[in-house]
Write a protein that binds this DNA or RNA. Sequence first.
DNA 1: CCCATCTGTGTGGTCTGACCACATGCTACA
DNA 2: TGTAGCATGTGGTCAGACCACACAGATGGG
Lengths: 239, 239
Amino acid sequence: MSAETERAWEYVLRTIETDLLSGALKPGDRLPPERTLAAHLSVGRSSVREAFRVLEVLGLIRTASGSGPQAGAIIVATPSGGMSALMRLQVAATGFAVADIVSTRLLLETSVAAELAATDADTTAPRQLLSAMDSPGLSEAEFLALDAQFHVSLAEASGNVVVAAMMAGLRSSIESYVLRAVPNLESWERTSARLRTEHAAILAAIESGQVAEARELVHDHISHYYAESHLTRDAASVA
Amino acid sequence: MSAETERAWEYVLRTIETDLLSGALKPGDRLPPERTLAAHLSVGRSSVREAFRVLEVLGLIRTASGSGPQAGAIIVATPSGGMSALMRLQVAATGFAVADIVSTRLLLETSVAAELAATDADTTAPRQLLSAMDSPGLSEAEFLALDAQFHVSLAEASGNVVVAAMMAGLRSSIESYVLRAVPNLESWERTSARLRTEHAAILAAIESGQVAEARELVHDHISHYYAESHLTRDAASVA
DNA sequence: CCCATCTGTGTGGTCTGACCACATGCTACA
DNA sequence: TGTAGCATGTGGTCAGACCACACAGATGGG
């Protein structure tokens, strides 16, 4: 147990966190200008900036140059961005194995689907994404982006923000791998058609309240695709 | 689709991420000194530092002053720290509701327990923590810390690093709330005794392969405690 | 009177240079 | 030979300067 001296930017971060917890700061509020806050906390402006960078990447603030009410650092609390950055970098640094990402996604999404089927949640968002994926002339990347949004929208429909953020993070963390694995597919045409069919079946099972069916369909949908694209294998052989 | 000009620190971050993905950088490696990297990328040292702060908070690097092989920025890829910081701050900024944190924990942990029961995983770590919690004279905070470690160790036993990191993050994000809610309990003595009993039952179910039983016990264990401490209610009334 | 234009001001974004604290490793001296 | 002291390189921090940008108010022409 050493003195564990706190660095200046950590002090700034801790101060802001305290203000958030006490309610002195809340989403929509504007943080003081960097120079003012630096003077107020008796630290250099660079230390304030380092703390702000962290807050920005974590999705807590949004910064904008210029003047007026939209400029400065504003508290936003949009978790998906930070979750995505965290998971993406951890996967890049091999702190997270792609196989673990996939199985976590499987775990979360089957539970979400089961819960959605058990309740009667609003499914308009996934419905719209479903029809958007039927548009002709979509590129592979565009289709997969809509696909990702569809799955995230299911999590959002559950009303659990944390799970939704995790789903978004999990997805974006392996986005580059998924794109790179597309050529591994035997036929993109056939696969995308199957994905569309499966999406429709999943949504139908959810809307009709078939809990076990929804869970099963989601499980097969996800694991089937990853197996088909040989994603986990390729991820291991990237190095 | 604007030009979306990249800021200097984002450029640094992207460069490092690229090197990670390409395998040019991997855990254990040392990043170049800040001054060198700044000159190499034609940016200011402060921009490099802002990128480093982000990497540090996200658990990707560890920095140390001084000289020698241990000094500098070293890639470590320890995800739990970043996950904890992210969730803790998001909860503080009310981006994550405490109720969602709790239900996510419920979702993850019941699945983990079921999976552990279905396989025969190594349970020595949770066993040790179980006996550690039997030590007399533990303070409430100490007991709860061991409790948290017990649950995280279950996730770790599943072998899924992502889920383990999430569990650690979920737990630390509401740590302050949990501690503050202890006085709400009718009797800490009785509650802690019950927790110990339930932990033992959970572990026994897992080790004996009773899947449904393990899931059920974990569910009741978690939801019972939160209900008893009125945590979600208090969290809402903190402001 | 109204609208467009110009300008001042305050903000974040960045760079430079300087200094400190610290850990290491070498060197000179006893 | 061993130890004390010094040189070096690293992150940590601060101060100051400049830029780009967005807004608000002043200014001018219609």
